Amino acid sequence: KKYKIKVYVKDKKTKKWKKIKEIEVDTKEEALEAIKKLPPNYEVKIVP
């Protein structure tokens, strides 16, 4: 079972969220580790 991490950042001009990358991992633990490495201003969604 794979997890997709969708990473969004808020556009300063439009104030809208835009997706900047998608990370695919195998476990939820890996997903949480990957999220920890991202800057705090990123919004993250984990999709099972």
Rank of each mutant, 00 (worst) to 15 (best):
K13E: 10
I5H: 00
W17H: 02
K16C: 10
K19R: 04
T27C: 04
K1D: 07
Y8R: 00
K13V: 13
I23E: 03
E22F: 03
A34E: 15
K2G: 11
V47M: 11
K15W: 02
I5S: 00
V47L: 08
Y42P: 02
N41M: 12
T14N: 08
L38F: 13
K12V: 11
K16H: 06
E24S: 12
V7D: 00
I46D: 01
I35A: 09
Y8C: 03
K37L: 12
K37M: 11
P48R: 14
K13M: 08
K45Q: 11
W17G: 01
K13Y: 11
K15G: 14
E22V: 09
L32C: 14
I46Q: 01
K28M: 15
N41V: 10
P39Y: 09
P48W: 12
K10V: 10
V25G: 01
K28C: 15
K15A: 08
K18V: 13
D11L: 06
K45F: 13
T14L: 05
I20C: 05
K6Y: 15
L32M: 13
T27Q: 02
K12I: 10
D26P: 04
K13H: 10
Y8I: 01
K6A: 10
A34P: 00
N41I: 11
K6V: 15
I35S: 04
Y42M: 08
K1F: 14
P40Q: 11
L38A: 03
K18A: 04
K2S: 10
Y42C: 08
T27M: 02
I23Y: 13
K12C: 06
K12N: 11
K19D: 01
E33F: 03
I23F: 14
V47H: 08
K18M: 09
K12G: 08
T27S: 14
K2R: 13
K21M: 15
K16N: 05
E24H: 13
K10A: 04
K1A: 11
D11K: 04
L38K: 02
I5W: 03
V44D: 01
K12H: 13
E29S: 07
K6W: 14
A34K: 09
D26H: 09
K12D: 08
K37I: 07
L38R: 02
E22I: 06
K18P: 00
T27F: 04
E33S: 09
Y3D: 00
E24T: 11
K36Y: 05
I20Y: 07
D11Y: 06
K45N: 06
E22N: 03
Y8V: 00
P39G: 11
T14W: 04
V44K: 03
D11P: 02
K1G: 13
A31N: 00
I5L: 13
E22C: 06
I46C: 09
K2T: 08
K19V: 11
K21P: 01
I23W: 15
T14C: 04
P48L: 15
K45V: 15
I5P: 00
I23Q: 03
K12P: 12
Y3R: 01
V7C: 08
K36P: 03
K2Q: 08
K28R: 14
K37D: 11
E24A: 08
E43Q: 15
E29I: 09
K10P: 03
K36A: 08
E30A: 11
K16S: 04
T14P: 01
A31M: 14
I23N: 01
V47C: 10
P39M: 08
V44A: 13
D26I: 05
V47P: 02
V44M: 06
V44R: 02
N41S: 14
Y42S: 07
E24D: 11
K4Y: 08
K2H: 12
I23H: 03
K15Y: 03
P40K: 14
K45C: 15
K12E: 13
K4Q: 05
I5C: 04
K12W: 11
V47G: 05
D11C: 07
K19E: 05
V7F: 07
K13A: 10
K18D: 02
P39K: 07
I5D: 00
D26Y: 11
T14E: 04
K1S: 13
E22D: 06
P40A: 12
K1I: 14
E30D: 08
